[in-house]
Simulated scan of single mutants.
Amino acid sequence: MPMAAEEIEALIKAGIPDATVEITDLAGDGDHYAARVVSESFRGQTRVKQQQRVYEALGGRMGGVLHALQLKTALPE
């Protein structure tokens, strides 16, 4: 069962409360998304750690309910 973009956004914001999240459905199938997550809390963390935090916020749904997520993390400008 595919995930809605709104559900992905809500999970990320629950795990990273100060995040600004943009979700794009890449294939129109609810399985392949791109996410841009911007958070001040990423400051001082490697890109790998930032992405791990996003995956942790998704609570193990990657590879299961959520098939593919193209992820970009950033600090606020």
Rank of each mutant, 00 (worst) to 15 (best):
G28V: 06
L69D: 07
D18W: 01
S39M: 10
K13T: 08
V54I: 05
P17D: 13
I12K: 12
E77P: 12
A4T: 03
I12M: 03
G30K: 13
Y33H: 03
T24L: 07
E22I: 06
A35L: 01
A14L: 15
E56N: 15
Q50G: 14
A68H: 04
T73A: 05
Y55E: 05
S39N: 11
G63P: 09
E40S: 11
G64C: 08
E56G: 04
I16D: 12
L69F: 11
A4M: 11
M1C: 15
L69A: 02
P76C: 11
Y55A: 02
A19D: 14
E9W: 09
R47T: 15
A19T: 08
M1I: 10
Q50M: 07
R61K: 14
V38I: 13
K72H: 13
H32S: 09
V54T: 02
S41F: 01
G15N: 12
A5K: 13
L66D: 09
A35S: 14
R43S: 13
T46H: 07
L71V: 05
G64T: 09
G59W: 03
R47F: 08
Q45H: 12
I23Y: 11
M62V: 02
L11Y: 00
I12P: 00
A19P: 01
A4F: 00
Q52L: 05
A5D: 15
I12L: 04
G59R: 15
G15E: 06
R47G: 10
A34R: 10
A5C: 10
A4Y: 02
I12G: 02
G60L: 01
M62C: 11
K72F: 00
S41P: 09
S41N: 11
L71N: 10
A34D: 14
T24W: 07
R43P: 04
A10M: 09
E7I: 11
S41R: 07
K49V: 14
R47L: 14
D29F: 09
A10E: 13
E22Q: 15
L66R: 07
R61T: 15
L66Q: 14
H67E: 08
K49A: 15
I8S: 01
I8Y: 00
Q70H: 04
Q50V: 00
G44D: 08
L26N: 13
Q45A: 13
E77T: 04
Q50K: 14
L71I: 01
D31Q: 14
L75P: 02
R36W: 12
Q50S: 09
G15K: 03
G63N: 07
Y33E: 01
Y55H: 06
R47D: 08
E6W: 08
D18F: 00
M3E: 05
M1N: 11
A35C: 06
V65M: 04
M3D: 11
Y55T: 01
K13M: 08
Q52I: 08
V48E: 04
R53A: 14
D29I: 06
K13Y: 06
